[in-house]
Design a protein around this nucleic acid. Structure first.
Lengths: 121, 121
DNA sequence: GCTGTATTCAACCGATCGGTTGAATAGCGT
DNA sequence: ACGCTATTCAACCGATCGGTTGAATACAGC
């Protein structure tokens, strides 16, 4: 029953691939806001923003509550861990590989040093 | 002349929104590989994989060299910093806000304590 | 120079995306 | 009950996406 996370990861990355949605996330990091409030700054319809929020919600980045006819949006920052977890895993692997390569190059340098000061070329 | 990074960030997030491309990145973290090698495990054509690599390349996640007719792919892990930088910025803001909220709630608890043990209800 | 291998280019296809407009729904305040 | 506000649903549109097939290009080896 594993590998739900790959679908989830795809949703999160896809959600943040849009600059308007990233900006919404940025603004929500300063505090909760309603759809109407979020829509104001952009040159698009409220419906478009509503769709963006739905995408963020389905990615688990945003949750919503109720306040009369308003539906305030709240940033769920824990989801970021999913991304940083993935990223750091492969960054670490790449860096380890880089260090091993460094070690090999150093070893080759040593060999060359021995060659130069030792037997032959 | 700023805000080149927003376009770049969009490309990186969009590139990683596809599970096949994430898997390619994962495999490249273990070492460089050619298009042909990368294509084998997936049930898609070499051309499709070639397109995926192009997307990763334009996002700056992959660079390529030349070895005869082969074009080995190399993971450029530094780009990850762009993402983690963005993510951490807003995670931090959200957490700070959360702590402030915590402080407010604690203050309200104090007030209530005083009310209970002090003057009136 | 020809053959085989590795990769890309080009055109096409159905699905999804980000946007629109218009109508529906939900919940105040009077 | 009515009107105002906030939000969503539904249908549509052009653009982009992930995939295909078929042809072109680039290079090594015989």
């Amino acid at each position: 029953m594993a590998e739900l996370s790959t679908e989830r990861l795809s949703r999160v990355f896809a959600a943040l691939a849009d600059p308007t949605r990233r900006d919404i996330v940025a603004r929500l990091s300063e505090g909760d806001a309603t759809v109407g409030q979020l829509a104001e700054p952009y040159g698009v319809s409220v419906q478009a923003v509503s769709k963006h929020i739905k995408v963020l919600e389905e990615a688990g980045l945003v949750s919503r509550s109720r306040d009369a006819q308003r539906r305030p949006c709240h940033l769920e920052a824990e989801v970021f861990d999913l991304m940083t977890g993935w990223i750091e895993r492969y960054r670490r692997r790449a860096e380890e590989r880089f260090q091993r390569l460094d070690a090999v190059l150093a070893a080759m340098d040593d060999l060359q040093d021995n060659d130069q000061r030792g037997v032959a070329s």
